[in-house]
């Protein structure tokens, strides 16, 4: 009988399980960013600021209160956590395009794999960096939310680890997808996946508004992130979080395992 703890061992390829040095990829990125690269972090502050301001100024007054899952809240408090989760998703997907560049043009990983580093180290390391970058944005976002009075509870702080999981899960899947990209033109498909996910993950109106089509919304991985952070912002704890988090964890494991295999396939021919 397999226990739950053994499950990742069954799913993940040996390359990931043998990963001992993923932090070296973070170290690499640290050296790269040391020379001015940290500007990208600063630019990360603007996105939430503009988003949240637009809601504060306009939508809030226009829409009034929203009822979601039996709880009524001001629209700003309803929508801000969803934007927070979306921003975690966006950040990690942007980072994935950098991976394409390093994989295809700069050939950064070829030389790395000639050392004791493995494809699992590279895959996990790059995902951790994407997550780290996403986390910095999330902190900025949360501070902005708080400053604009859009946090409803002290538990809003718990939204951060969830954002990190969202970042990791999306970066894992996005990087996995990136390994299948042949040219930059293939990236044209990315917005056609991201935009509907952004708009229809119960981001701007409650799940109940979708009527019979709620199951479609629940297929969106972003929805599961939104559901948890929205609840946490209200200081609410629910068993359903476990299910939502499981979806994100499954995504992360799947993306990680595909990426390690693909790096093996592409670079270790």
């Amino acid at each position: 009988m397999m226990t739950l703890a053994e499950l990742p061992l069954r799913i993940l390829p040996p390359a990931v399980l043998a990963a001992r040095r993923p932090h070296r990829m973070l170290e690499r990125q640290w050296i790269v960013n040391r020379r001015g690269g940290w500007m990208i972090v600063l630019t990360g502050f603007f996105e939430p600021l503009f988003y949240l301001l637009s809601i504060r100024i306009g939508f809030g007054g226009l829409v009034g209160d929203v009822t979601d899952g039996g709880r009524t809240m001001p629209y700003a408090e309803f929508v801000a956590p969803a934007l927070f989760a979306s921003s975690a998703m966006n950040g990690s997907i942007y980072e994935a395009t950098n991976i394409f560049f390093k994989l295809k043009y700069e050939k950064t990983y070829d030389a790395v794999l000639a050392t004791p580093m493995t494809s699992g180290d590279v895959a996990l390391g790059e995902m951790l960096y994407a997550t780290f970058r996403g986390a910095l944005y999330s902190v900025a976002f949360l501070i902005t939310m708080w400053a604009l009075g859009m946090t409803a509870s002290i538990w809003a702080i718990a939204m951060l680890p969830v954002a990190m999981l969202v970042s990791f899960a999306f970066s894992a899947v996005a990087i996995a997808g990136t390994t299948y990209m042949r040219t930059w033109a293939d990236f044209e498909y990315v917005p056609s996946l991201m935009l509907p996910m952004f708009l229809f993950s119960a981001t701007f109106y409650p799940l109940s508004s979708y009527g019979d089509w709620q199951w479609v919304v629940q297929l969106s991985p972003l929805y599961h992130g939104v559901a948890v952070v929205r609840g946490l912002n209200q200081g609410e704890w629910a068993w359903s979080y476990l299910a939502h988090v499981s979806v994100l964890v499954a995504m992360a494991l799947w993306g990680l395992s595909v990426t390690a295999r693909r790096i093996d396939h592409l670079l270790l021919k």
Binding site: R24, E27, R28, E106, K107, T108, V112, T115
Partner: peptide, 18 residues
């Protein structure tokens, strides 16, 4: 296959870290 995002010295140092 040098790391084009790094300097000469950082290329060597980071490689040692691997």
């Amino acid at each position: 296959q040098l790391d084009e995002q790094l300097t000469v010295q950082d290329n060597l140092m980071l490689y040692g870290r691997y």
